[in-house]
């Protein structure tokens, strides 16, 4: 089966600083793929490259023909000088019918918000409105960048349930970045672990057991859980200079 979107040896840089190197990935129709990785590991940059907001230094991005992407950004800071109702926001950049807008809001679980001002929404409501807007384009793939940032755990869990029900109803693929590791581990078909390069990938269980993954999310606890450290010793790196400490047992529950 051909992929919806794939990258080949993608290399991304900002102002001469490499943020990602040699990333090759594929997302198939209908699957949920989650990207995990520490701050600054290039997760958001990868998503922004996939939507076309940044251009790769080298490598390729291949999108299936006529691919419709629904993008849900990390967060939007709405300038308080810009008056905007939810209904008006859903009509950007293309006008949609009132029924379609309402259906999208229902799909995102917030049909009552249409006439509210965007700036007056809570974090959870706002993310669902962003999701509704993404749904309006009947996407082949939903791309979500830390969409549950700022939500409490029950809120995040409900949001992921919503994503799952969206996938079941419209059959889109989902590619998301997330920090909610245990939720992610339960909800994803496949997990990619990123840290400047693709450290490891596979089913949630495979990734959770991978030493690279454990190393990354062990160091997140300031070494408090680290019984000992040693230098990066897995063999897929090429000039990768970050340290991977080998931490047993516990995952960070971010």
């Amino acid at each position: 089966m051909s992929a919806l979107i794939e990258t080949e040896n993608l290399h991304l840089a900002y102002g001469g600083n490499t943020v990602l190197r040699d990333v090759s990935l594929r997302v198939q129709r209908g699957e949920i793929v989650t990207i995990v990785g520490p701050n600054g590991s290039g997760k958001s940059s990868l998503l922004r490259a996939l939507i076309g907001a940044i251009h790769p230094i080298s490598g390729r991005i291949i999108r299936a023909e006529g691919l419709r992407i629904g993008y849900v950004p990390q967060s939007l800071s709405i300038n308080s000088t810009l008056p905007l109702t939810v209904a008006r926001f859903l009509n950007l950049p293309k006008r949609v019918s009132a029924q379609a807008a309402l259906a999208a809001l229902e799909g995102a679980g917030v049909p009552e918000l249409a006439q509210r001002q965007l700036g007056a929404l809570s974090g959870g409501q706002f993310q669902r409105v962003l999701l509704a807007r993404a749904l309006l384009q009947s996407p082949d793939i939903l791309i979500l960048d830390e969409a549950t940032q700022g939500l409490d755990q029950p809120g995040a869990a409900r949001f992921y349930q919503q994503i799952e029900s969206v996938r079941q109803s419209i059959g889109c693929a989902v590619l998301m970045v997330s920090h909610d590791l245990h939720v992610v581990m339960a909800a994803s078909d496949r997990v990619l672990c990123l840290n400047g390069h693709l450290c490891c990938e596979g089913t949630p269980q495979v990734v959770a057991d991978a030493p690279e993954y454990r190393a990354l999310f062990g160091t997140g606890t300031q070494g408090a859980l680290a019984l000992y450290r040693h230098h990066h010793d897995h063999d897929h790196h090429d000039g990768c200079d970050h340290e991977h400490s080998d931490v047993p047992v516990e995952k960070e529950s971010a």
Binding site: R48, A53, P73, L76, L82, F89, L92, P93, I143
Partner: peptide
Amino acid sequence: LLTATLSPDLATAS
């Protein structure tokens, strides 16, 4: 213009 003003990334994705 409005879309790009709200978010350059949302605009690009559209």
